[in-house]
Design a protein around this nucleic acid. Sequence first.
DNA 1: GCCTAGGTCCCGTAT
DNA 2: ATACGGGGCCTAGGC
Lengths: 235, 235
Amino acid sequence: MDATPDPVAVRDTVQTGLDAGELVTVFGRCRVEYDGRASSTLGPGDRLLVLKPDGTALVHTDEGHQPVNWQPPGCEHEVRLSDGTLRIHSSRTTPEETLDVCFETVTAVNRYAVTDDSELSVSGTEADLRERVLESPSLVESGFEPRATERETAAGAIDIYGVDERGNAVVVELKRRRVGPDAVGQLDRYVTALRRESHDETTVRGLLVAPSVTDRASELLADRGLEFVALEPHS
Amino acid sequence: MDATPDPVAVRDTVQTGLDAGELVTVFGRCRVEYDGRASSTLGPGDRLLVLKPDGTALVHTDEGHQPVNWQPPGCEHEVRLSDGTLRIHSSRTTPEETLDVCFETVTAVNRYAVTDDSELSVSGTEADLRERVLESPSLVESGFEPRATERETAAGAIDIYGVDERGNAVVVELKRRRVGPDAVGQLDRYVTALRRESHDETTVRGLLVAPSVTDRASELLADRGLEFVALEPHS
DNA sequence: GCCTAGGTCCCGTAT
DNA sequence: ATACGGGGCCTAGGC
């Protein structure tokens, strides 16, 4: 279905594909309206609409990683033909959100029978960094002993909780990449919470473990008496 | 090109489309390898590969808003045929990253000539919330007077800086949606920085303006002597 | 180029 | 259902 297809055939192809649990794409000149957490309007242009069997809708232009408009998984797609123009209406609740794509012209419609049993395996994540530290705690500092991961505080969970060679409590916040001010704020919240929950005699140190740190984050660390340790997620 | 196409024709179609500045999609059974800021492997499965004229690559499965693998804009796409199988290699520098998609089978290849002159118009953003406050400062509190937006401090830019009816300095941090602990940390950084940069006599208040706030964030606000004002980005 | 913060962020996990 | 933090986040705007 590639050259100026008949509108009825287009609608039927999309509907049949969706009913069959296939992935359906529509390419053509369209307008897009979105309303929900925010709202948006997009004037006419050529775009690729991707409708997935899980209820995802993606509107892709010629540029950018991000779809210009979208609907997350779990939506219901409705296909209509009004005055000979194809309209796709995709909606969900909690939150209430609607996406409307109205095609002036349809250049192509395609149905794809998709099966995918493989799972993506990623390395270089924060989890890898955590394993590295747990297996070789001295990478953080000599004498460091991890005691818990995901230890809960009033401010949230500490990535790694442990003690240093002098017996001080240590809060470790891990980041897989260069850290900015936000990570310092996070570490500070955990350290402050743990100090409040500890006996007064206990010293609580805060360590930000990441490949590198920005200047401003470094200043913030110094201000709050926190420390930085350079460490990559991979060996 | 829809039914079990000839490998050479597939390669030529993809290459010709890319050369022509078109958007090209390839659907089929493939494996994907990524290496760069992290690295990943994905076993065989049916996916839709989208190659954009700006150098973006997207690998979409049957599920999810997010592509399972991708390459951001600015990459170079290379198309090869080795042992009769189609291989797409997409790479960039700074950071050095590569994406390899190897097709066992190709079900369909499509070329789309895309032009899109329209710009997306969005409302309900943080910018809208800012305009609302600047036009009606009393929505924040009676007597509030905005004096600057994006006022710089050592910790970063304050969304709205102003004074209250008593002449105290006021730091306003805006969020378009319900706020959590991270927003409190952000506001706290700005308030602390401004206090340091001000004369000691000056009182600096911190206001988090957002539709709502989580319990933990509310506690953090209280701890740090900061305040919350409920306000939606739209009227 | 890096830094900073916003986003209809999405997404998984825990509560 | 909400909350919280990670992400190869991406993207825009400054410097």
